[in-house]
Simulated scan of single mutants.
Amino acid sequence: MTNAPLPANDDPLVEVAAHWCMRMHAADCTAEERAQFQQWIDEDQSHAIEYVAMLEIWDLSEHLPASKPAPNQRPALRQTPSTTALPARPRRRGWRPQARAIALALVALPLAAYGGWIMGWLPNAYEHFETEQNISRITLGDGSEVELNSHSELSFSNYRDRRDVSLSSGEAYFHVTHDSTHPFVISAGDGTITVTGTRFNVWKYQDSVVVTVTEGSVRVQSERDGNDSTLTPGMQASFKAGDLKPKVKSVDTQTALAWREGKLILNDITLGEALPLLNRYLDKPLLLADQSTADIRIGGIYSTRDVASLVKALPKVLPIKLEPQSDGSTLIRTRL
């Protein structure tokens, strides 16, 4: 059986003691682990003291018998000549069932959390953010800064070996705090965006994702088993569900990120290309009647705060008509 990962050298002492406490009481604890534990105990007197304190907490819950310990569970704590013997721990009696259950819960949950953190299964911090009409500027627990566009939803989890972000919907511009040993991984759609410290934008619309880089480099993978692409400043990658590799191109980042200044720049693009950009600011989506309508071109600079008024004005500047639908959406059709 594979041994549990060893604690890192810079982990707080109480977390390391909790790790060894759980491993020494685990049924699958190996002789190699017991030797590693004894080596840790021998390294510093404070290790032995912290471990005995952790055993005190463990025994309070009566998760283990409070009588004589088994040899493979309590390896000898070596004492230096200047170290006084640690006092024996009295056996605890008379706990009522309710008290035992409470004590077990109070101890087991923190220890499980320590173990989950050490193994990389559980985060030690979780944050969730949602926006409605306005842009929000937030700082994540690791110090990374995020500008969250309207109608967006994002969550952040800090694990021991990585920082996980999930962009459920909408758009976010990231300035990631550099940490080469603690990568920043964003899940969006079926793909992931991995960085260690840089500035970039991620936009998720339905099952499509667009990543635009302004500083540093970003690795984009469209699917778990798909090929990845590395982006540098001025590059943009897009992918949707089922794409084995992102599509990469060069872009004008000022146009792509104009939303940060409350602007929507449509630089002579088709309605088919413009619709996703418009729909992210509307409560009910616009739909296209046919390909000929999708091919009509549009340009201009508009305010993201009043896209609904822009849509109402479209028939005045384009050869189209708007047809409200029963579900609240609006169908755009070419005006004959």
Rank of each mutant, 00 (worst) to 15 (best):
Leu111His: 06
Asp142Ser: 00
Ile135Gln: 08
Ile138Ala: 11
Phe129Tyr: 15
Asn149Lys: 05
Thr139Gln: 12
Ala112His: 04
Leu106Val: 14
Leu111Phe: 09
Leu104Asn: 03
Glu132Phe: 12
Pro110Ile: 09
Ile138Pro: 05
Ser136Asp: 14
Ser150Val: 08
Gly116Tyr: 03
Leu148Cys: 05
Ala125Ser: 14
Ala105His: 07
Asn149Ser: 15
Ile118Cys: 06
Arg100Cys: 08
Ala101Leu: 11
Arg96Phe: 04
Gly141Gln: 05
Glu127Arg: 14
Phe129Trp: 13
Leu154Tyr: 00
Arg100Ser: 05
Leu140Thr: 09
Gln98Ser: 14
Glu145Gln: 15
Pro97Cys: 02
Gly115Leu: 09
Thr131Cys: 06
Gly143Asn: 08
Arg100His: 05
Trp121Met: 12
Tyr126His: 15
Asn134Pro: 03
Glu147Ala: 15
Ala113Gln: 03
Gln133Ser: 11
Leu140Ala: 08
Ala105Gln: 10
Leu104Lys: 03
Gly143Lys: 06
Ala108Tyr: 10
Leu140Arg: 06
Trp117Gln: 01
Gly115Thr: 07
Trp95His: 11
Arg100Asp: 00
Ala103Asn: 01
Ser152Pro: 08
Ala105Leu: 15
Glu153Cys: 06
Ala108Trp: 08
Val107Tyr: 04
Thr131Arg: 01
Ile102Thr: 11
Ala103Phe: 03
Asp142Ile: 02
Ala113Thr: 02
Gly116Asp: 00
Ser152Tyr: 01
Ser136Ala: 13
Glu145Asp: 15
Gly116Asn: 02
Asn124Val: 01
Tyr114Gln: 08
Tyr126Phe: 15
Ile138Phe: 06
Tyr114Trp: 10
Ser150Pro: 01
Met119Cys: 11
Ser136Cys: 15
Gln133His: 12
Leu122Asn: 02
Arg96Gly: 05
Pro123Tyr: 03
Gln133Phe: 11
Ile135Asn: 09
Ser152Glu: 03
Trp117Glu: 00
Ile138Lys: 10
Leu148Thr: 01
Gln133Asn: 12
Thr139Asn: 11
Ser152Val: 08
Arg96Pro: 02
Ala105Val: 11
Gly120His: 00
Ser150Leu: 09
Gln133Leu: 10
Leu104Gln: 09
Glu153Ile: 09
Val107Glu: 00
Ser150Ile: 05
Gly116Gln: 05
Tyr126Met: 14
Ser136Leu: 14
Trp95Arg: 13
Glu130Tyr: 07
Asp142Thr: 02
Leu154Arg: 02
Leu106Asp: 10
Ala108Asp: 08
